[in-house]
């Protein structure tokens, strides 16, 4: 499993937090949403002006351009101020502006990053829209400009555009907190039909945190297996894991097919208790190769 790019941010409390950095794609999507919103807003006001019938057609066009400008420029900075780093488009895409230094966003930085957006994106953008073959030099310049600006976020780790660099901000995905069940509580109490599984400490020496958490993932997915096919596949996976674990830890007693889930849950609990205890004593075991590493170290 590849984990997406994470970035470390140190809040004043001193406990580092890790955020997923928002890519160029999702930010472009948010930008287009915002463009649509401001465009519709400007259009509504423009239609109102037309309906009032106070200006001639010629000036109406100039006023339309002005309205778009006047609605667009404050929209970004003000909405990011009010919603703490989110415009409507960013809210829909679940992304957010944060400050690099871990402090609260300042008005200053929000205004900077959105003013630079004007010079960085909109101006060359409009230039490109109005390109024609006659004015070749400006067209090429505008094209180069846009390409240069688009390249900036691709060449730094935090995907900051120029405005972000100047303002000291970057954009992250909002994390979603979901509290899952504690798998060590899922262990069923022993009954007559199903004996309780016992593990000895030498049997728990083999695995590390990585294997434990992979097992946790498999156990969590047990409830998700829907439909006969998925259920069958899940059963096969369980059987394979049980066989592998039994071989590795020298577990002699046979495990009946209907007890496989229970066996793995019991093993998970025992293994976790063991590893956590080792960790408390300063013996962190990252994965099953821990013995080799500690020998070398």
């Amino acid at each position: 499993m590849t984990r997406p790019a994470l970035d470390r941010l140190l809040p004043p409390e001193g406990v580092p937090l890790y955020f997923r950095i928002a890519g160029v794609g999702v930010r472009t999507a948010a930008q287009f949403t915002d463009l649509l919103i401001t465009g519709i807003g400007a259009l509504a006001v423009f239609l109102l002006v037309l309906a009032l019938d106070i200006v001639s057609a010629n000036t109406a066009i100039a006023i339309a351009a002005m309205l778009f400008f006047f609605i667009r420029i404050p929209y970004y900075a003000v909405s990011e101020l009010i919603w703490n780093g989110q415009t409507i488009g960013k809210r829909l895409m679940k992304i957010k502006v944060v400050s690099v230094d871990g402090q609260a966003l300042t008005t200053q930085s929000l205004v900077v990053r959105n003013l630079m957006k004007e010079a960085e994106i909109f101006l060359p953008g409009t230039l490109i829209l109005t390109l024609n073959a006659e004015a070749l030099l400006p067209s090429i310049l505008a094209l180069l400009w846009v390409m240069g600006v688009l390249a900036v976020p691709l060449f730094n780790r935090r995907r900051q555009r120029l405005g972000d660099i100047i303002a000291g901000t970057y954009v992250i995905h909002l994390p979603k907190p979901i509290l899952l069940q504690d798998m060590s509580k899922a262990v069923r109490p022993p009954s007559a039909a199903q004996p309780s599984f016992q593990f000895l400490s030498y049997q728990l020496e083999h695995y590390g945190a990585f294997e434990l958490q992979t097992l946790e993932g498999v156990l969590r997915s047990a409830n998700r297996a829907k439909g006969p096919d998925a259920y069958k596949r899940h059963k096969e996976t369980l059987a394979a894991i049980v066989a592998q674990v039994r071989r590795k830890i020298d577990y002699a007693d046979p495990v009946r097919p209907e007890d496989q889930q229970a066996f793995l849950e019991a093993f998970y609990k025992a293994q976790r208790a063991f590893l956590e205890q080792r960790q408390l004593f300063g013996d962190k075991r990252k994965d099953k190769h821990h013995a080799i590493q500690s020998d070398q170290g």
Binding site: P11, L17, G102, P175, K176, L180, Q213, E216, R220, L275
Partner: peptide, 22 residues
């Protein structure tokens, strides 16, 4: 070593941090 718990706490603290430092 509970991945589910760690992910949850990580996300919750981050969200709360973003709210508190607005």
């Amino acid at each position: 070593l509970d991945r589910g718990l760690l992910d949850y706490l990580e996300a919750l603290t981050s969200r709360a941090y973003l709210c508190v430092y607005a």
